[in-house]
Design a protein around this nucleic acid. Sequence first.
DNA 1: TCAGCAATGTTGACACCGTCAACTTTGCTG
DNA 2: CAGCAAAGTTGACGGTGTCAACATTGCTGA
Lengths: 221, 221
Amino acid sequence: MATYLIEYPQRVGCMAKLRDLKEACVLEALAIVASDGVEKLSLREVARRLGVSHQAPYRHFASRDHLLAEIVSRAFRSFADVLTEATRDDDPQIALAEMGIAYLDYARREPLAYRLMFGTLLPDVQTHPAMMAEARHAFDLLLNALAKRKKARAMPTDVFARGSDEDLAMMRDAIFIWSTLHGFASIQASSAVETLGLPANLMDNMFEELLTRIRGGFEAT
Amino acid sequence: MATYLIEYPQRVGCMAKLRDLKEACVLEALAIVASDGVEKLSLREVARRLGVSHQAPYRHFASRDHLLAEIVSRAFRSFADVLTEATRDDDPQIALAEMGIAYLDYARREPLAYRLMFGTLLPDVQTHPAMMAEARHAFDLLLNALAKRKKARAMPTDVFARGSDEDLAMMRDAIFIWSTLHGFASIQASSAVETLGLPANLMDNMFEELLTRIRGGFEAT
DNA sequence: TCAGCAATGTTGACACCGTCAACTTTGCTG
DNA sequence: CAGCAAAGTTGACGGTGTCAACATTGCTGA
């Protein structure tokens, strides 16, 4: 019987209790993912930790995927917040670098959260539009930073460039940057260095070097 | 009773039968991964498809992870073969580009196999050294290609560079190249373009562009 | 006030899964 | 041909997601 009320005693009525258990499930799920990884996440374990029957969460999440979509959404939001906070400088070029560092740093600090977002099969997008919106928001941070940079460097001739082509080119720029950041981050988050028997410190202190190379590749087109 | 004998009737004795069932398990597992993804791989499903009791595979694989390690090893080997075959040109720079194209092409053609190697939590390395050896072999293809390129461009002053520092620098080069390739490939292999609601053809025909940018980033240090 | 009702939580079942233990069958070998 | 080790089978246990039926709760309108 509702042990979670002890941990979340603020409830005053039915609706509040509802939000409490739903919220408690989300928090407990996030805790499981953060400590043991998404593979260990199960509705029954969440229910068990909350001292509630194994079916109680089903009143608030139609399936495991619905709970997963919720915590993935939150992970994207928190990730986007970190990127936003890190991007401070007025110089768009420097702001981009700040974002890149923040990206890599997040993946290193929170490998399980990073794997949750980018390393597992996500629930179907069509049935979880909120999750997609959060993910897109994070991606838009990169697109916006690129747009600012482009604006600051705009040549008069750019006026003639057609909008959609321009957008597509910028998205391609974003894909390149994201590819390099994501590749590095996921290699680091996986145990690839260990798996391959490479020097343990191989990927340490490579952030700046990686950004330099991204810059080089960025101007190579 | 051993329906798989019908499919693999070449057996002549006990030992041959052993290899048959073991081999049949591996082939069936690879088929499952190729058609439904690694998540759908289960020892019981393999046994069922082979018309054999659910415990029979345990005579040949101590656990699910042991079967997984075996098919991951084979995936790495087949991947390495593809890279090797594609790398034909005498010019080390062109050979590197050929390898890059082959890498991206493989990930696009076989997204489930790619995810098997690079997108899932692999079994423990210490207990599966053969798997690690195959993975390392694939990585060494890149290192060797880089070494050839360096040799072809060697300046006389390079003679003074210390070996281990040189190796470390080359591994860092490899990490950059691999990061970009892997990032792009895994973004493509995941349904990220769909998840983010980006133009469906955004990542088409980007292979050459990506290689150009890698080249640019490569020379930026 | 209180009957009724919808929301919420519980219990039990089913079909999956990996894995351990005990058993039977098989086929080679001394 | 007896024996033995390897191979395969059967059954069980605890874990999972999920469906169905039931119990409880607390608000609401007569």
